[in-house]
Amino acid sequence: MAHDGPHIVPKSILLKVFGALIVLTGLTVGVAYVPLGPLTVPVALGIAGLKATLVVLFFMHLKYDNPVNALTFTIGTIFVVVFVTITLLDTAFRGDLGNVTAQTVQEIQAEQERAQQRQDAIPSDSLRIAPSDYPNQDRGASMESDEGS
């Protein structure tokens, strides 16, 4: 682009952006001493994001540049967000199948014992199936006759 006369960001804009960056740095340090509770991290990241945006747009010239460069950078940033968010989706909810506690294990064991007792209470002979239990010993034949009827 050199000989077509490159786009030059005026020096005044560069200096103004630099001033804004310094002010924002002061702000983020100041905010760190204010108890914001759960907002601490979002505020710090928000200010950092704002600073980064200023650097990208003006120092890195992206505001005046070929859109494909901006697209490239945006896609890269999106995938960082994807990486962080989806990983946190796991780690923030790790162990969310919360039914497996020491108590659950005890309950399951107790249930198994009760089942065992119930089974023991029934005389095992009454459960045994003997060939004579079936009305017709020749199963194939019986089915055939069923079909025939």
């Binding site: 989806i86 989706l89 796991d90 780690t91 923030a92 909810f93 790790r94 162990g95 969310d96 199948l97």
Partner: peptide, 14 residues
């Protein structure tokens, strides 16, 4: 990518 980790102990929601 997490479908390689169904039995690795990641959270059920993910």
């Amino acid at each position: 990518w997490g479908h390689h980790m169904f039995v690795s102990g990641q959270s059920a929601i993910s």
